[in-house]
Design a binder for these strands. Sequence first.
DNA 1: CAGTATCATGTAAACGTTTTATGTAAAAAT
DNA 2: ATTTTTACATAAAACGTTTACATGATACTG
Lengths: 338, 338
Amino acid sequence: MAKIGIKQVAALSGVSIATVSRTLRNPEIVSEKTRQKVNDAVKKAGYKPNKMGSSLRTQESGNIVVIIPDVTDPFNSGIICSIEREAQKMGYSVLLGDTQNDPKRAEQYAEMVEYGQADGILLFSYNLPLEVVPDEKGNVNLPPIVNVCESTAYDGIHKVMVDDEEGARKATQHLIDLGHKRIAVITGNENTTTNANRLAGYRKALRTSGIQIDDKLVMQGNYQIDSGVEQTKKLLLFKDRPTAIFCFCDLMAMGAIKVLHDHGYSVPRDMSVIGFDDIKFAEYTYPAISTIRQPVDEIGKTCMHQLYQLLKGKPAEKYIELKTELIVRDSTGPAPRK
Amino acid sequence: MAKIGIKQVAALSGVSIATVSRTLRNPEIVSEKTRQKVNDAVKKAGYKPNKMGSSLRTQESGNIVVIIPDVTDPFNSGIICSIEREAQKMGYSVLLGDTQNDPKRAEQYAEMVEYGQADGILLFSYNLPLEVVPDEKGNVNLPPIVNVCESTAYDGIHKVMVDDEEGARKATQHLIDLGHKRIAVITGNENTTTNANRLAGYRKALRTSGIQIDDKLVMQGNYQIDSGVEQTKKLLLFKDRPTAIFCFCDLMAMGAIKVLHDHGYSVPRDMSVIGFDDIKFAEYTYPAISTIRQPVDEIGKTCMHQLYQLLKGKPAEKYIELKTELIVRDSTGPAPRK
DNA sequence: CAGTATCATGTAAACGTTTTATGTAAAAAT
DNA sequence: ATTTTTACATAAAACGTTTACATGATACTG
């Protein structure tokens, strides 16, 4: 069985290959009857237009690459999932760019667009894997790229962010409202913007309520589950223990709760724990985790939409901030009376 | 800044484009000194060979597509992660094919190879998204594809599987060894092979130990967390309750434990729970989940290796089965004395 | 009816590579 | 000195599309 390309279809339907191509891309500019003929031939021959051929000609790969630190993280996989769904609707395929937290790999993935393997980038990272080289007129020449959730230092890039500061403020305020005064925090990766913003929100809430900020209560985590475990263990050794822990992601909250249980503490009776993200499992742990919900679907939809604008050379907003929501479940409760 | 292609590099280094190409693909067949010249020019010009051009010519996209039901499932995301790592080493990029459990989408992704967008398929599904059309000589013409973890009905396809039956047997035996006699099971999706095999293993263990098989104790789940919740609730209403639950995945085990806690049962004192998969979080829940570990990294590595063989037209084993391992943690314990 | 606008199609030139067949100069063999 | 071999390098032909331009037919205008 010889390979069937556009030529074969053209021959079969008795028109030129140009007409075949037009029938498939711009059906409206070809007459009703030839359109019929061609479509029949396409169906009959089972013609599948070769993507590489068309990509080469159009200079569009039809791919986007999403650069993300770790697909294994439930928050990330949620995002990826919603992006993929959205991308498919728009006719794009997604190349997976799991960096495993290695900046070099991020760079490699970013290069995909220079190699013409991808048309655009969705970047979940705080460091830009691209050189920003201003031309003679001083304006830079970035590929279509949108920075999502984590903000890079570079301002020129389009961003879709979440109101991390406000989210963290709400979480902290929730604990304060429950009567907690000594509220520990387990942070995310040190140099991430999400982390900085959440920390700011935490401090703001304390300040507003006139609670003394104690830097000993901010424990350095890294968004991974074991850092939640580790830091909580440390907290338990404090002489004046906190009565609540605000973890900067649900995963660390899971770790924290685990440790508390293991040490015989009841959550939330002895200690409240609140997370961030609202990953799928947050409501299925015991106790169900109170958290700050990030609008995962909306994030995926929005960043993909923004990227689409960029890809098509249409105007796109430079900065979009999405809202979080406080979800109260069972891991937070009134502060224990001393 | 004009776009720099192979032509520009050729001009810059004073050789033909053919020589440039050879220098990059087959350095060994070009003389030392021209190789130098060319490499210098490549570096100086910052030349990035266009993937579409080369793909079109070589008829290889350099992509593989992994078709998987739901990236959001921690077991799946673990697999994807290990595949991606392996693929990258081999010079392949991975296209994400999250089907969201929709067979139509699976088909679309599978078609990527017919469109020349991908060279091969890693298929995590029990239904083959491809027509198997035997030619005149009776042999079928499948694209490079390997079926992973879930087995399709079609035998002709290369498979990398896990010893689900033996795994389930071990899990059940573990419970039996702890003195449990009434052991419930929460299954996965009805028509999956994993499910059938695990069920077989469960039954085998009971039979071997001379325990009466009670089909009322096999509850239909679907590998998703809420089915663990739902079915456990049902189990609690039984007059002669089981003393242990074997969930066919850790997610459902999480759900089960959650329900048990909510209803005031202590795990494992009142009821033992064992899962399957050993997802990353299994050891961080409270109590930590006893489970059957699937060798995620090995699965990714193996199936990618098999696919590679197929892609390169080298021989590949038709069937590989990987071993599971019983991991005893805290969610299983001695059967309560009545 | 000449002239012009409109429309449907065909022709051929790209797109950026790789690679086969061909050529050429230098090295080796006679 | 002449031929044969070797080692490179080149020119040109693919790969499978899309699309600018050309062409011819048809319809419309004054």
